[in-house]
Every structure is written in C-alpha cells, then in structure tokens.
Amino acid sequence: MRLRVHARPRIHTGLVDLAGVSDRSFCGVGFSISGPCTSWCIEDAKNIRLNGISHLDHLALNDIERVVNDLKAMTVKGFSATLERSPPQHVGLGTKTSLLLSLIAAINRLKDLSLSDAEIQQMSGRGGASGIGINLFFCGGVVWDGGHATTDNLIFVPSSTASATELPPLIARWSFPDHWTVGLVLPDNPTFFGEKEASFFKEKTPLPSDQVLLTMSAVYHGVIPAFATANLSLMKGALERVHSTGLKREELRAQTEKTIDTFRRFQSLPRIASGLSSLGPLIYCIFDRRDSESREALENLARLTGSKFLGVFSGCNSGFEVEAA
C-alpha cells in the first residue's frame, strides 16, 4: 500500500501567560492556513528508508530519528517515507510539528497501529509549551490553547526544548472566516531557533504580570471575538495591542532592523491585520479576499522592502489528510 499525507501550516498569534499570573501558563490562539503544505509519501518496504530530508537541519533530523526509533520499538517493520514538500524551517509556520505529526499519522494508517490522536501527539514530543500546532494538525480552523498548569517550579521554555509531560488542552475551536485570506511575507532569514531560541526565553521570562494581563485582554477580548464575529477592524486593533505588550513585544524587538521596519510598514496598511507569527520572522497579513487593492498593496510592499512574498492562502478548517498515492 502507498499513501500520501498532507499537513497544513499554522500561524501562532503569540503566547499569553509567561509570568505565572494565572492558573494556566503559556496558552494562546492560532489558526491553520491552506499552504505551504508538508507532504510525505509512505509505502511498505523491507527496511526503513527516509528520502527527501537532506535539506532539513540537524534539529529536525534528530527528531525524525527519535520518532522512527519509537516506531521500531512498537515492532513496526519496514517502510519508505519520502518528504515531497515542506515549508521553510524556523520562520513561524510550525514546520517541525507538521513534519513529525504527519510522519507518525501516515505510519499509523499504513501499519494499522490504531494510535489515538493523543498518542500521536505524545510521540511527536511537541506541545511542551504551545499546544497550537499539535491541536490544529487534527482539526484545523482557529483554536484556543489551554496551555499548562502553573506550578511553583515552572520554567518558561520554548516547545523545541520543553518536554510535554501533559498535553495542552483544546479549550475552544472556531472556523476561520470564509471571506478572509492570509498573505505571508518573509522579510529576512530565520533568527531564532535551537540554543538562541532557548536563550531568548531564559532572558525575557518571566514577564511582568501587568504585561501579561494586557496580553490576555488583547487576545481574549480582542483576537478571539474578532475571529468569532469575523470582524477585521477588531482584529487589526487587537493584533496591534498584542504586539505592543508582553512576550510578543519582546519577540518583535528581537528581530533584525529590516524585519522590524518591514513589519511596521505592513502594520500601517489600512484594512489589513498584520502580525508576527511565533518568534518570526514571518509576517502574516489578514484581509478580505474580495479586497483586490489590499492584495496589490501587500505584493507591492513586499517587493519594495525586498521581502519574499510566499503567497496568499485561505484559512484551513480541517485537519491533516491521508489519501491513496
């Protein structure tokens, strides 16, 4: 049997509580978009073979090796897995989460392992900080991540270095508005991953409690209602507040001068709600799909700033897909 699995990227609007001011730390809101996708082609084989992964960095390769070893321990025999396409790494699209979850989900289907969603999530090793990617993989749309229980010894670290002792609960899900679309702009090369990402969290957290409360207000009384009511004007204002306080403000300040300047210019465009996904440098721009002037403005500004325009994508209101290849 030969199967192909497709996983969509995610946009993360920002972690919320990195001060331990509430009963749940981390938390946040994110959404799934239609591309650029991660796709694996999987088939039975005598031995285990992995193809098309030479362009991945050592961090991703190590995690893929760990997942394969876990599958071997479950008496999984041979299979051939070819990575046919994947988004850029370390830019804010949740690429590693998609890579690992889609590989496990494909082998689960190919070998009829009957793994539950939670078991697939646990095997991926993701979700130690944010639960956005591990939940959106299965359901798509817009999700509210319930984070982790706040404890006295909680250390604020990124998902790349945190062990997921508990899976962040999915508090709520909404459909991404049909008439909205998302432009993706990459102004610079990746800056934060691996040790540098871990150092950033160590230096910047815990955050002042008042900053976290302002972030909560902007996210829970701004971003979430904007998605729920498809109010683009509310979304634009809410994202501006998110980026002016808390961790997202620190993430933005840590970017290169080019990324900061480019972000501010996109943020100033009317009828477009812009944000920095995760630790950047990816800028996402939400606008009405019927607004051709806004799309033209995005493309023109990307060219003017020397940024890479990755395209315009719709929201994705469904999870991963597996099909016969």
Rank of each mutant, 00 (worst) to 15 (best):
F156S: 01
K202N: 10
A172S: 14
T181A: 04
I155T: 15
R173N: 04
S163D: 13
E166C: 15
K196F: 02
T161D: 10
E203K: 15
S199Y: 06
Q211I: 08
V185N: 04
F201D: 07
P169G: 03
D178P: 09
K202H: 11
F176V: 02
L214N: 10
N153M: 11
W180R: 02
E197L: 02
G183E: 03
L207Q: 06
F193W: 08
V223R: 00
V223F: 01
F200R: 00
P168N: 08
R173F: 07
E195W: 02
T205C: 13
E195Q: 06
K196I: 05
S163E: 15
D152F: 11
T165H: 13
S163T: 15
W174P: 08
I155G: 09
I171H: 10
T191M: 11
T165S: 14
H179I: 09
L154T: 10
I224A: 06
S163Q: 15
F156P: 01
S159Q: 01
S163C: 08
K204A: 10
S163I: 12
N189H: 13
A149W: 12
I171Q: 11
S159L: 10
L170T: 02
I155D: 14
H148V: 03
P169D: 03
P187T: 02
D178K: 15
T181W: 02
T151L: 10
L214S: 14
K202I: 09
W180H: 04
A198D: 06
L207N: 00
